[in-house]
Amino acid sequence: MKTIVVSALILVSGIGLSFKTLTETWMPDNTKYSVKISSSKFEGIFKGLKTNIHFDETKPEQASIEASIEAETINTGNGLRNKHAKQGIEAAKYPTIRVVSTAISGKGNQFEFVGKLTIKETKRELKFLFQFMRLSPSEGLFNGTFTVKPSDFNIKKSGTPESFIVTLNIPVTK
């Protein structure tokens, strides 16, 4: 019995290990990435990107992507608007904006991200197309664009645009 349990544990840990080695772990280049929002009223950027990216373009179904940004870092280029935006997303109370994948599919350098976007602790499904370009064996670039409706996340401060376009440009290294 003991032998069976030990064998099962070795098998399970072996499967876990082989799964991790099948995907590649990427780290963002913290000096070059951009997380940009734009609307009819203004543009802005976020900083404080943290990621946990396991992605191999030849096996996208095994990929997993988690990323977060710090809500307090929003910069629209205008102090009053920054204050307004931080109040809208309640950055002090909800300091993190997060995306987590549930499924990734695609081929070549075009992929589809399906997952959850969390703003103000409100989760909504997120689906968008993104590109991954391998620049060298240890360097790559993620590009993607999606739309966010603030009202879906209970952001109702007056003056908030109906929707934002979020543009991601994230150089990564292994």
Binding site: K36, F42, E43, G44, I45, N75, T76, G77, N78, G79, L80, N82, K83
Partner: peptide
Amino acid sequence: FHLPLEIESPE
């Protein structure tokens, strides 16, 4: 006035 986005602390 809107500063370039890479400039920090526009306030």
